[in-house]
Amino acid sequence: MTNPNKSAVQLEGITVRFGDYTAVENVSFEVGEGEFVAIVGPTGCGKSTLLSVVAGLLLPTSGEIRTFNEATKGLNRWVGYLFQQDALLPWKTALDNVAIGLIFRQVPTQEARQQAQEWLAKVGLKGFENYYPHQLSGGMKKRVGLAQILILNPKILLMDEPFSALDVQTRNLMENELLRLWQEDRKSVLFVTHDLEEAVALTDRVLVLSAGPASKLMGEFTIPLSRPRDVAEIRLTDKFLEIHREIWHILRGEVLKSYAQNF
């Protein structure tokens, strides 16, 4: 099932313009089957734009997306997308939020709820079935969001700074949780973050995007850290620090450029 040499998503020469503003320019990369890839870059470098393009929510100005070697048009049916902001339906309970994707696929309500219950338990929210999103903490909402997507068993996961709004402890917890769930069936993951430590701790490969406008791919680093990992502990190893320093060397310049433009 897992074969990083086989491509899951392939971006070729993706350029996105909004009017006169060029968000990303000529970006090409690949995510292999079962591969966990991060895109890092300073704020406003078009990371989220790239995810929207892969999801099919945004049409690129030029370039092509191929998913499992098929040109992708319209919404990408292979992917699950965990948004940066809260995207749960506030008028549905945690259980119904998780079940909703199955309901959309005409699965009978009873069965959808049954599966949703199992998934809520899997993300550690047994007993919170009847809570509405506003009654849940930030971390819990992310768990519900994760279950909402994973219940549909997508081949590819897109994650847009999913944990950036959480406090550090909750964040480490969620990152480990994500790794544990990912380890189970190794989906392809494209994970966007501005936090280089998070990117190195979680992924197999890190792509560095330059400061916007007209962001380009600046570099690509394979992360030679063994799995399974504990995100809090791995940060203290020499190997981690070494690769972190190497990527930061490139990223730092971009971050400074981005600051110079925006502040």
Partner: peptide, 10 residues
Amino acid sequence: VILANARMLG
């Protein structure tokens, strides 16, 4: 965002 999420969920 909620709209985009629902669309992505099919």
